[in-house]
């Protein structure tokens, strides 16, 4: 019983690590560090899922943890590393709003998400239902990262990190989604990654930069 209490607390700790890493990504200027943080976030998600699987004795959660490990911690980071090597972008990340403001907006989003999740979490019978607020906050923060970044690569990382948040929300509220759905999402994310990669090469070829603000122009000047 004692052991179980510690395990549930450690799920809370991993959930907090997820949120902490979301914030670290929001404040990060370098693309290379952004990829490292994304990998760490994936690892925290895997750890949280494994602990939930062990506590609740749900075997299918082990499989979904394994899928997350392969896609989020191994394959996608390698793809991202190769992508930024090819595109030769390692350092500069331009933000549309400066970083301290983004952080303050981030706090507001966290308060909003926590409040929003409280009544929903009460409906859930899961042992880790209180972490639903954290999962929701991660989703919103990644969403904001996609909005505030001007370059394409950080936006893709924001998209992937949003998927991490959604995955954790599913684990926290209902012990994960059905296996078929999870396979589908993992496959979608991988394919999306490839398509976005090709898309980025196209953007750069067309505009000589990865700044997606160029896409807003309809005509050639």
């Amino acid at each position: 019983m004692m052991m179980q209490a510690y395990l549930i607390q450690s799920v809370n700790l991993f959930a907090s690590a997820l949120l902490l890493l979301s914030f670290a990504m929001l404040s990060q200027r370098r693309i290379l560090s952004l990829i490292h943080l994304f990998t760490l976030q994936g690892a925290a998600l895997v750890a949280a899922t494994v602990v939930v699987a062990y506590v609740t004795n749900q075997h299918h959660l082990y499989y979904s943890a394994a899928i997350t490990l392969v896609t989020k911690v191994i394959v996608i980071p390698i793809l991202l590393h190769r992508l930024i090597d090819r595109l030769n972008v390692k350092w500069d990340v331009e933000t549309l709003i400066n970083i301290p403001t983004t952080m303050l907006l981030g706090i507001l989003l966290v308060v909003f998400a926590f409040n929003l999740a409280l009544p929903i979490a009460k409906l859930s019978s899961s042992i880790v239902h209180s972490t639903l607020g954290i999962a929701l906050a991660c989703v919103l923060l990644s969403f904001m990262m996609m909005i505030t970044r001007a370059k394409a690569v950080p936006q893709v990382i924001g998209f992937l990190s949003m998927e991490n948040g959604l995955f954790f929300a599913a684990t926290a509220a209902t012990y994960g989604m059905p296996m078929v759905v999870e396979f589908g999402i993992a496959f979608d994310v991988l394919v999306g990654m490839f398509i976005l990669g090709v898309f980025m090469f196209q953007i750069r070829e067309q505009f000589d930069s990865l700044d997606i603000r160029h896409l807003e122009k309809l005509k050639e000047d």
Binding site: N12, A15, S16, L19, L20, F23, S27, I99, P100, M103, L104, G106, I107, V110, V111, F114, L118, S130, T131, G133, I134
Partner: peptide
């Protein structure tokens, strides 16, 4: 430096919020 310390402040505030959420 203001950014560095804003991060510290924000983390501490999030810590308090997490305390209210998770207890």
């Amino acid at each position: 430096v203001p950014e560095f310390l804003a991060t510290a402040f924000m983390l501490a505030v999030i810590g308090m919020l997490v305390h209210f959420l998770l207890g």
